[in-house]
Design a protein around this nucleic acid. Structure first.
Lengths: 249, 249
DNA sequence: GCGCGACTTTGATCAGGATCAAACCCGGTT
DNA sequence: AACCGGGTTTGATCCTGATCAAAGTCGCGC
């Protein structure tokens, strides 16, 4: 698996880019940022390429800059379950463990900002901001993971699809710094199969339910991958959740 | 909802009890422990009592001392999904947030060790051990939550039951400091309905699959609630996982 | 244009769990 | 003892989503 790596990017962009990519360092002082700069480097992957397999030794932690990656598990007989979608600003890896717990695969073209693990851990012990920020992010992720259990365990196929679309719509709006509003549209970054793996369904069921939502006028499709949501409330109404918003995964 | 609270316990037990209940403070110095002592208190609940509802203001963080609690979500129409089982040494609450994200209910009689949130947060900023320990625990929980997604999304009813029994068997053995071995037996701490809510099934299906496992000789029942596992390997074989162990939730 | 491959849609049938319903078990109370 | 109620088991039937199969769409290179 060959990789394009160490791509040159504007180093400033990592900390000031338009997509709130201050994931790791939100409250750091300039000199602390300086030390982070010294141990960071970029990697890029094409859609479909693996970033790391479960069990592999992991010599870095990282943060997604652009693109989408998936976190997933596969059983011996081939059943797979996606356990997380990594969008820009999401964190990859775990200080204190040296092997990856899940497969990480680039879903679209992907750029991540890596930090060598050992120096990053050293930095954490001397810079309390970073640990605190990481704890905050991890707690948020834990809540999201638990919200997703409700989707997997108790929702119908239609509700699952609606939930996924609503989440992508909200995150997409957040990245563009739009408030979610009616008439929004976005690209579906996932194949039907990837959606199925995320939702615990088969790809046929995903396709059928998307068709059903289209027929019901909840969404419109422009080609296979562009989705238009005439009314976000109508979509959320199909998720089975109450109206107040819910998690942004 | 009346509560028995502030039960007197040997204060030393919290940190040195036989069930590795050094959750919060594993690496703390004596004077740091001293400061934790000052802000802690105990609460006890009877089986079935709520500890806190989702959305409630939460003025403490806590750690389970004895008994079992559940973390769960309920949809408006009554479908509920348990998103975590809290066993002794597990942590409840989140520094930095002031409302609970999920319902916490005592499954069996329960004692928790609480710390007032504000002073605990203050302590965290000055005692890096605590934050680091909490990050570690949270990352472990996140991994467990994600492992559980595979169970909810992709496993059959029989595999789900086997997975749950295997997890309880392993955790029970860990609490007793036994290495899991053949012929082990333990109490089932959950009703069929609670198991169903954890596994995303109905209680009838849970009952049927337990009967099926019994008929297949994988487990034996002594009454309704005592389980004997003649061979842990045979049980694990039914979970669909590979043999190597898997997560201890 | 043509053909190819990846992805998607749609159809027909099947089966695993859900649902509805009834009986059972067992400890606690009167 | 008789009764009660919560939890559990078992049975009959239904239905959602899986499975198997085939055809449709689109982008792309030749």
């Amino acid at each position: 698996m060959k990789l394009k790596m160490d791509v040159a990017l504007d180093t400033k962009e990592c900390w000031n880019c338009p997509i709130k990519h201050q994931a790791v360092c939100a409250r750091c002082e300039p000199d602390e940022l300086e030390r982070l700069e010294e141990i960071k480097y970029y990697r890029s992957y094409e859609a479909g390429q693996p970033v790391i397999w479960a069990g592999d030794h992991m010599e870095f932690v990282a943060s997604v800059v652009t693109g989408i990656a998936s976190l997933s598990q596969t059983m011996e007989d081939g059943r797979t379950q996606m356990v997380g979608l990594l969008l820009p600003s999401d964190f990859i890896g775990r200080p204190g463990r040296d092997s990856a717990p899940f497969d990480v695969v680039a879903v679209s073209d992907l750029t991540i900002c890596c930090f060598r693990k050992k120096p990053f851990e050293d930095l954490m012990t001397t810079t309390p901001h970073i640990g605190a920020r990481l704890l905050e992010m991890t707690l948020d992720e834990l809540d999201s993971a638990r919200e997703w259990m409700l989707v997997l365990g108790r929702k119908t196929a239609r509700e699952k699809i609606a939930s996924l679309l609503a989440i992508i719509a909200r995150r997409d709006a957040a990245l563009r710094r739009n408030t979610p509003k009616d008439g929004m549209h976005f690209d579906l970054p996932l194949t039907r199969e990837a959606m199925a793996d995320y939702l615990g369904l088969t790809l046929e069921t995903v396709s059928r339910q998307i068709s059903a939502l289209k027929k019901a006028g909840i969404i419109k499709l422009d080609g296979k991958r562009k989705v238009v949501v005439p009314s976000l409330d109508l979509l959320i109404n199909e998720t089975g959740d109450d109206i107040d918003g819910g998690p942004i995964v």
